[in-house]
Design a protein around this nucleic acid. Structure first.
Lengths: 115, 115
DNA sequence: CTTGACTCTGACGTCAACGGTAGGTTCTAC
DNA sequence: GTAGAACCTACCGTTGACGTCAGAGTCAAG
């Protein structure tokens, strides 16, 4: 499929796909006319990026861990990065839960005063 | 206390405090010389901002819900915003947990292949 | 073989939350 | 009363993940 459909299926913009390629996160075949061609795997890959972006990883880090995903092999350094990122995300989850608790206080107070 | 100490106690930069004031999130008394004066409540307030920032709320939204915090009263619109933000954050937590699961797969595979 | 939708490569624009700097003032300690 | 730390305003710079636009080429349909 071409870039427009791939973007739609992955739920991102056409520009985003070109950006990912620019950053070395995504490759693509080219038609004889020079247009990008993607397969289903590329769509999955992009969805994976979205998850990692949502988790706060910058594209640099994603690029660093892509070899693990692609080849299935890891260096000690890469394993260390994976667990470090895991810890960072876990911490973010904890922060968000704290924020949720805080918001719940506000909401409860607001509802009480409303009644 | 002056801005330097307030920043240190809140765990942010001096620049950040001036930025919050610029955005209408924080006020301060001024000494006769024009220097900002903060109390403990301001420090707490800033810590609260940090929590909300961590939860992904932009300063615009924070500014919108500050009246609830300050006056303790809410309009229907504000209550709606509070619960909407709550839902958004909850969704983010879910996304992060999904990312964690994904990373755990990678880590497990890496550890297995290492051994 | 033309039309219209889609795509291409640059390259500049955007937005948030500050960082950093310049040039000058205020405060605290001695 | 003076040195040095801390503070002031004003303004430009930064970073990341794209948005947007220009000008040109490509592709599927009729």
């Amino acid at each position: 499929m071409r870039i427009g459909e791939a973007a739609k299926r992955a739920g991102v913009s056409v520009r985003a796909l070109r950006y990912y390629e620019e950053q070395g996160l995504l490759t693509s075949e080219r038609s004889r006319g020079g247009q990008r061609e993607y397969d289903e795997a590329a769509v999955d890959r992009v969805r994976f990026f979205q998850q990692l972006y949502a988790a706060g990883l910058p594209s640099r880090r994603i690029a660093e861990l892509l070899p693990c995903v692609d080849t299935g092999t890891t260096t000690g350094e890469q394993r260390a990065m994976l667990t470090a990122e895991r810890a960072r995300i876990q911490q973010r989850v904890d922060e968000l839960n704290a924020a949720l608790a805080r918001l719940d206080e506000l909401i409860a107070a607001a509802e009480a005063r409303r009644a």
